[in-house]
């Protein structure tokens, strides 16, 4: 752990979107959970409020000493005592019962032995089935033949976020049996992509990386803003984020860029299930910023952003719903 390098400058606290929300005042902050807790375990029992982090990586990018705060916080989560918020327990129960954090509503499985797998993720299968259909038909129109396997389970990323290491290892084992049969995995969720690359060692491609150099045109009428997913820009990397902008601009989407586009919407890190009021409050601040910009809605590339912002009444399109093949 590199927490010894903390110079107590407070940059992480100023960058934290949870501390920047009125409902996030109880969160001890990235310094207490990421630096102090690993160093002073006897003082680390901050209780469930230590879980009020969206894992957006903003603190990590702000840190002048390159402390891996998110990693430290993930470890703390696995060491926390006590049952945790009821929403997190429900999620773990769902995974034990169905293999996914939410049960799948989607049933148009494609199991034809293609060498590419489209991996919609739990939210894509359970909550955003129209996004999953749009992504699948977009891939088909681009001549990317793919399977959608009923045997692919939760990637494990949300499980790590609630400290469920054992369950995460279990789903990884089952998933590897399925995923290793494919040459390539395409995902819609940046969290899944990050997990499959870092924890599974797979060359999983996010939809943005697949669409990068293809001829596309806009399906979004009017002016649209961008909701930049944290795990796309600060997880996979700034270039993938740039590619998202490039795809939309080349397709002819009228993009309105606002400074708030990079700020976390509150949809990650198990916040919507663990602390729904905080997740909603963060989403509402974002919705207000987008309303001020006078746009139709936002385009994003993350199911969690989609879900959390739609709950607050904003029109949100996933990248696969915003563009189509330019024939």
């Amino acid at each position: 752990m590199n927490s010894d390098r903390c110079i107590k400058c407070g940059s992480c606290l100023r960058a934290c979107p949870v501390l920047g929300d009125a409902r996030g005042a109880l969160f001890p902050g990235p310094r207490a959970t990421g630096v102090d807790a690993p160093r002073f375990p006897e003082r680390a029992d901050a209780g469930p409020s230590a879980l009020m982090c969206t894992m957006c990586h903003a603190c990590e990018l702000a840190c002048p000493s390159s402390i891996t705060l998110t990693k430290a916080m993930l470890r703390l989560r696995s060491e926390l005592k006590g049952p945790g918020p009821s929403g997190h327990l429900r999620m773990r129960e769902n995974v034990r019962a169905t293999g996914r954090t939410v049960s799948a509503d989607f049933d148009e499985w494609v199991e034809e032995g293609n060498d590419i797998l489209y991996f919609p993720g739990c939210i894509g299968l359970g909550r955003l089935t129209s996004m999953t259909r749009a992504a699948s038909s977009l891939l088909t129109s681009l001549d990317i033949k793919h399977d959608i396997s009923s045997r692919a389970l939760c990637c494990g990323s949300p499980l790590l976020k609630v400290g469920a290491l054992e369950e995460a290892a279990n789903v990884k084992r089952s998933n590897m049996e399925v995923l290793s049969a494919y040459r390539k995995v395409v995902v819609s969720c940046p969290g899944c992509a990050y997990q499959l690359r870092t924890e599974y060692g797979l060359e999983a491609k996010h939809m943005v990386e697949v669409l990068r150099d293809l001829p596309l045109r806009s399906r979004a009428e009017g002016r649209w803003a961008l909701q930049m997913p944290c795990h796309l820009k600060r997880g996979l990397g700034p270039w993938t984020a740039e590619d998202l902008v490039g795809i939309l601009e080349r397709a002819g989407v009228e993009l309105v860029r606002i400074p708030e586009e990079d700020v976390c919407c509150g949809g990650g890190g198990g916040l919507p299930s663990g602390f729904p009021e905080l997740a909603a409050s963060m989403a509402r601040s974002k919705v207000r910023a987008y309303e001020r910009a006078g746009v139709e809605g936002v385009i994003t590339a993350c199911p969690f952003c989609c879900l959390n912002l739609r709950r607050e009444g904003l029109r949100v399109l996933d990248i696969s719903e915003a563009v189509s093949l330019n024939e």
Partner: peptide, 9 residues
Amino acid sequence: DVPLASRFL
């Protein structure tokens, strides 16, 4: 810890 964010929210 909040005051370092120092924003009246």
